[in-house]
């Protein structure tokens, strides 16, 4: 066996227990961020398409600020901002920052998919005597959600990979641990290769789940 593969195997064998735990942390942060991001996304999408100028402005401001600044800055900003007001560990600060960040992108995904639904659907619903909120809840949103799933899936995968950035506030998720491992074993190349593989496996599992869900919702089949 070539030398490099031997070292790679060594690094893998010596670190997999730690990486399994770190991987769990990555999944947890990602899941929390997705939940927060989706809730914020729906709220801000509805604000953006509402008739209220005030709500529209707030939503636009949020989306512009988030999209206009790097995630890593937002994580630092939120971490030092929040923790100066309330006691919050770095795990939660990171998950919240990642969620708030994703909310802006998810809002745009929902806005696009809601506005992409044929206006005849809304008219038919209103003509039946359903009010605006019933129409949104029962007719427009369920169709928009179906349409949003492929781009949402994409965004969720980006979230998973972006979770690596919370290492800057000291969370020991996959990337954070890889950094520490590499600093102590001096096998940078092999260590980051190992952690890259872990991310790849997670993304593949995640993609398969999304694909399965998309198929399940597809009424054309």
């Amino acid at each position: 066996m070539p030398e490099f593969l031997l070292t790679f195997y060594d690094v893998f064998k010596n670190t997999y227990k730690g990486f399994l735990q770190a991987g769990l942390l990555t999944i947890e942060i990602t899941a929390i961020a997705i939940v927060i991001g989706t809730v914020l996304g729906v709220i801000f999408a509805l604000m953006k398409i509402s008739n209220s100028k005030v709500l529209q402005t707030i939503a636009n401001l949020y989306i512009t600020l988030i999209r206009g600044t790097p995630l890593i800055v937002q994580i630092m900003f939120l971490y030092f901002g929040i923790t100066s007001i309330i006691v919050l560990d770095n795990f939660w600060a990171g998950a919240i920052a990642l969620g708030v960040h994703n909310g802006a992108y998810i809002a745009e995904i929902f806005r696009g998919s809601i506005q992409g639904i044929d206006k005849g659907q809304r008219e038919a619903s209103l003509a039946l005597g359903m009010n605006s909120s019933l129409t949104m809840r029962r007719i427009v949103f369920p169709q928009a959600l179906r349409r949003a799933i492929p781009p949402l899936g994409n965004q969720f995968i980006i979230t998973l990979k972006d979770s690596s950035l919370v290492y800057v506030i000291g969370v020991s998720e996959l990337f954070g641990l890889a950094n520490r491992v590499a600093a102590s074993n001096f096998k940078q190349f092999e260590t980051f290769l190992v952690v890259g593989l872990y991310y790849l496996i997670l993304v593949l599992i995640f993609s398969a789940l999304l694909k399965w869900y998309e198929n399940k919702l597809d009424v054309d089949k």
Binding site: Q121, A124, A127, L128, G129, M130, Q143, V219
Partner: peptide
């Protein structure tokens, strides 16, 4: 408006059935 619409049925050119 919703009350009155509930009493006035409408059929559209492009059907506008709910596909889901």
């Amino acid at each position: 408006l919703a009350k009155i619409r509930a009493e006035v049925g409408m059929v559209f050119q492009h059907f506008n059935l709910f596909p889901h």
